[in-house]
Amino acid sequence: MTSHPAVPLMRTTPEGLLWEPSERWVRGRRGDVTVVDSRHPVLVWEPHLPVPQYAFPRADVRTDLLHPAQNPPRGGHTGPTVFYDLEADGETRPNAAWTFPADDLAGHVAFAWFPRTGTGLDHWYEEEEEIFVHPRDPHKRVDALPSSRHVRVEIDGTVVAETRDPVLLFETSLPIRYYIPRRDVRLDLFEATDHSTRCPYKGTAGQYWSWRGGAAVPPNLVWSYPDPLPAVAAIKGRPAFFNEVVDITVDGELLQRPVTPFSAGLRV
């Protein structure tokens, strides 16, 4: 049998875009209207963005709902991009879709995600699971592993959590997050807030807490996922702390506070 070298899936365009085909069935909706229904999407990485975007063959898009943008933005994407306004469900959303200039992606249309940008489509699904914020990067992974490590969390010298029953969440390019049973967290030292965020890999962090003490720490430094996605079900209901602003000791070793993409937003 003759062997052949593997053909790389990811490709590069002269404009600097990276892209690769995806085998996931993807749908995008504006209200009750399905605007995208594709079994042949492609993932596109722009040089200035750390996360991928989906682009879809025109045949899989309700192009009858797209019209040349009335006020297209300058820049925002790689190369001379053509923008479209979306008219669906009784509303016009400006600059909701665009095409990339690369010949490789000719005939494909990309969409903004409304909860993140204020325009584009409201809901996205991969197979039957709703996804949030942006497509999941197939070259990154998230693992939630139960552990027996001894984890202690302190704020300004006060122990606010201590456990030997954490779940360690390993996420590509981010520090380990330590999800701690509620019984082992001093939530009486914190105040619940109405803040919430979404993650394409974990779901909705629907509960946040802020420190009640006098230390100069940012708000919403503790969070939990009441109903996480199935892949990380082990973190359900467990609070976690931003390593960037608290002191975490693991098995007797004080961890260095990391600098991450979240650091800029964690200011007092």
Rank of each mutant, 00 (worst) to 15 (best):
W25M: 11
G107W: 12
W25N: 09
Q70A: 12
E46K: 07
T119D: 07
R62Q: 13
V33S: 11
R116L: 13
A69K: 07
Y125F: 15
G118E: 08
H48W: 15
T99L: 00
T99A: 04
R116M: 15
P80R: 12
L86H: 05
P94L: 04
V35Q: 09
E87F: 08
G118T: 12
H67R: 14
S38E: 10
A69P: 06
V82D: 09
A97P: 04
N71Q: 13
F56R: 02
P41C: 15
S38V: 11
V26K: 00
R29W: 14
R58W: 11
S38D: 11
R27Y: 06
T63Y: 01
A102R: 06
T34I: 13
E23N: 15
D32W: 08
H40W: 13
F100R: 01
T81Q: 04
T99Q: 12
D37F: 04
A97T: 03
R24K: 15
N71M: 07
A102K: 04
P115S: 09
Q53M: 15
P41Y: 08
L66G: 12
V82P: 00
W25E: 15
G120E: 03
T117I: 12
G120M: 04
P73D: 10
D64K: 13
H67V: 12
E128L: 10
P52Y: 11
D60F: 05
T119F: 08
E23I: 03
E87S: 14
D32H: 15
R27H: 00
R93S: 09
T63P: 04
P47F: 08
P115W: 06
A96T: 01
R58E: 14
W124Q: 00
P68M: 05
L105I: 06
W98K: 03
P68I: 07
E127T: 11
H77E: 01
T117R: 11
G107Y: 06
E91I: 10
R27C: 12
D64L: 10
N95Y: 07
L86M: 06
P73R: 09
E87H: 14
H40S: 14
W124H: 05
F114P: 00
R27D: 02
G28A: 15
Y54T: 05
P68Y: 07
H77T: 04
P57W: 05
D60W: 01
A112L: 14
Q70G: 13
V42L: 14
L121C: 01
P21D: 13
F56P: 08
E23W: 04
H108L: 15
R74T: 09
D64Y: 03
G75W: 03
R93K: 14
H77V: 02
L65P: 09
R24C: 09
Y125H: 12
F100Q: 06
N71H: 13
V82E: 13
P52D: 13
H123I: 03
E20A: 14
V109M: 04
A55I: 12
H48N: 09
V44Y: 08
G107V: 02
G76A: 05
D104Y: 06
R30K: 14
V26L: 09
